[in-house]
Design a protein around this nucleic acid. Structure first.
Lengths: 188, 188
DNA sequence: TGTACATCAGTGAACGCGCGTTCACTGATGTAC
DNA sequence: TGTACATCAGTGAACGCGCGTTCACTGATGTAC
């Protein structure tokens, strides 16, 4: 056929996509350039257009890609918490120092929520799909349908903890949020 | 003294600051340029440096300025809700269609939370001060100290509602969040 | 087996553009005399 | 009251830079014969 096999093309495509998914969570949609993504993959900017039609195309795909591990984690956490009959396990993992310090590998909602509303429709659609899946997954351990309140509180709290420059204030936020989540897990 | 009175200089300074406070909430920190702020005030970009040392200086001041009405609103809402003995008034106003549709005049936390962590120290310090004041104010109607959980849930929910492109999903989020907030307002 | 050719992922120079910042300037006004 | 001067907020051309995108190209490999 040609120089490269089909798998090689797909692998590069996937690597670009994953790098973009990590970088948007770390630096925001406006903080990543086509060049910086390609550099992260070890290529130069010109080759980008063999894989995506333009930057908007990449951002929409990266939004979807960033939400996959987000939802998977909620799935694992809620499964474990339900088995242990201890809902607070989820919040303890979600609000951990590690998650606060590593947005690039963390929840896409906490990293990007307030920016998504300013993005194009494809990005917003991708976000809505992932967020709904996350809220549904959390409903396993928080009574009722799609647990939007819990999802909003946890992602909002993580964003606040990252925004605040003071370790003591971060701990204060975490303590109070976990207390409130305990109250929401109680009863019918 | 000179052509302009001291008041004139201060008025222009205040107008630039207010325009920046509105524009960062509407378009994000990376979505505003020195030129766009000056244009909003009816001036040209060159005059900017008679009022601020650089863009970072403006952003830090604008962060503070954007949080002033945010905290004032929480103050008014919680006072009214306490007087009416109806905590849900706050969430009803905060999660209103009007607030969803007008981030430029709305809560600075919902509009910017996930971006603040990537900003310089002065912006983050300003944010922390305002967020703490908001959480303290909300504690009037939600039992306990600084109501970080309620603040995180409300600001997180508003960000989610703005991110999502579907009216039905927005309503679903609002309904569930208000239900959860009712539960948090109950009891000791 | 050996040679000529076709393929195509990736390269890097080039483009037009908007950005933050600088700077020589303008021109309306207050002050000095 | 009238004239010369000083002040300084605001103007707009210019700068260097990074961006998204285009495009002629390279060069390693598969295929044809």
């Amino acid at each position: 056929m040609a120089r490269y096999t089909a798998e090689h093309h797909e692998q590069t495509h996937a690597a670009i996509l994953q790098a973009a998914a990590d970088l948007i969570r770390e630096h925001g949609f406006d903080g990543v350039s086509v060049g910086s993504v390609m550099k992260a993959v070890g290529l130069t900017h010109g080759g980008f257009y063999a894989h995506f039609t333009d930057k908007a195309d990449l951002l929409a795909a990266a939004m979807t890609q960033a939400l996959i591990p987000t939802v998977e984690r909620f799935d694992r956490w809620t499964t474990a918490a339900a088995a242990a009959d201890d809902p607070s396990q989820v919040a303890r993992a979600y609000l951990s120092d590690h998650h606060v310090a590593h947005p690039g590998q963390g929840c896409a909602a906490a990293a990007l929520a307030s920016e998504v509303g300013r993005q194009d429709a494809p990005v917003r659609d991708a976000f809505a799909t992932g967020a709904e899946a996350a809220a549904n997954t959390l409903a396993r351990i928080y009574p009722g349908e799609a647990a939007w309140g819990v999802f909003a509180m946890m992602s909002g709290a993580l964003a606040l903890m990252r925004a605040v420059p003071d370790e003591a204030m971060r701990n204060q936020i975490r303590t109070r949020v976990m207390q409130d989540l305990r109250k929401l897990a109680e009863g019918e």
